[in-house]
């Protein structure tokens, strides 16, 4: 991908300038130490926001006129679906940064993002199925959005499978970064195609989200939950990345020192 680096070399940060933080971010050791400081705060924020959103959404938000209490699964389903899609872009952007600026850390972030995103996609599909039973009368309907989510799960599976297929860390990182980028180009095409396919085959009989816009009392807890899921995603990503840093840098002196210090104390 040298042509890609050359293309971006104009914007390549200069080491001497005030871009130094960018290079520091690329150092696994620096990231490990800093993320250790951030982690408690982000976790605390995630816990608070998620707890607020859950209690608000599940206990205090008004009941839906048609769906009764079953609509409340929306407070898990929608944020998970949201993050599943943003997660793919986060993964692809991390991979692109790795390919362009050759940052070790961004490949680790990319690898960490794949299973988290896949898990969120699965949660979105599963909660959708559970929700579908009382609403549509079936666990599975070939609806446009469900099908797009399923394809997204396949895309995640591909990136993960490629990541694990290579023994060489370098090849695994670069190959799956390229695949993630190809997937990113394709996601809008896939989503539009599936939408088009769905309208072609069955005129939508039940529309869930285009039902009259949600009442504020229902929408606010959803917003809180989405923010909470973003924070939770950040926590999971940081934890997975830290794991990956320790695994890949296990031969360096600072990780050894860290391990012996932990063992000694």
């Amino acid at each position: 991908m040298s042509w890609l680096s050359r293309l971006f070399s104009k914007w390549l940060p200069k080491e001497s300038s005030n871009w130094q933080w960018f290079y520091r971010l690329g150092s696994p050791r620096w990231f490990y130490q800093r993320s250790g400081q951030w982690l408690p705060w982000v976790s605390l924020a995630a816990l608070l926001v998620l707890a607020t959103g859950l209690v608000w959404g599940l206990a205090f938000a008004p009941e839906d006129a048609r769906q009764g209490n079953s609509f409340r699964i929306i407070y898990i389903h929608v944020p998970a679906a949201f993050l599943a899609q943003s997660g793919y872009f986060i993964m692809a952007i991390a991979g692109a940064i790795g390919l362009i600026w050759k940052m070790k850390i961004s490949y680790m972030v990319m690898k960490a993002a794949a299973p988290i995103g896949a898990a969120l996609t699965f949660i979105a599909l599963f909660t959708g199925a559970v929700w579908g039973k009382p609403t549509w009368g079936a666990y599975w309907v070939w609806d446009a959005r469900i099908t797009s989510m399923l394809i997204l799960l396949f895309l995640y599976a591909g990136v993960m499978a490629l990541q694990y297929a290579y023994h060489s860390v370098d090849a695994a990182s670069k190959a799956s970064a390229i695949l993630a980028l190809v997937g990113t180009v394709n996601i809008p095409i896939i989503n539009k195609s599936v939408d088009w396919w769905y309208t072609l085959h069955q005129p939508a009989t039940i529309k869930l989200t285009s039902a009259p816009s949600m009442h504020m009392d229902m929408f606010m807890p959803l917003l809180v939950m989405i923010v909470g899921f973003y924070l939770f995603y950040a926590v999971a990503l940081i934890l997975h990345t830290r794991n990956e840093i320790l695994r890949r840098e296990r031969k360096t002196s600072w990780v050894r020192e860290l391990a012996t210090a932990k063992a000694g104390s």
Partner: peptide, 27 residues
Amino acid sequence: ALTVSLRKGGLLLSLLVMPLYMPVIIF
């Protein structure tokens, strides 16, 4: 190209490429 050096690349190749084929089959 992504799977060329893998010993069991064939099946993996299908997994990688199949989701990308879906728009083509739709149209």
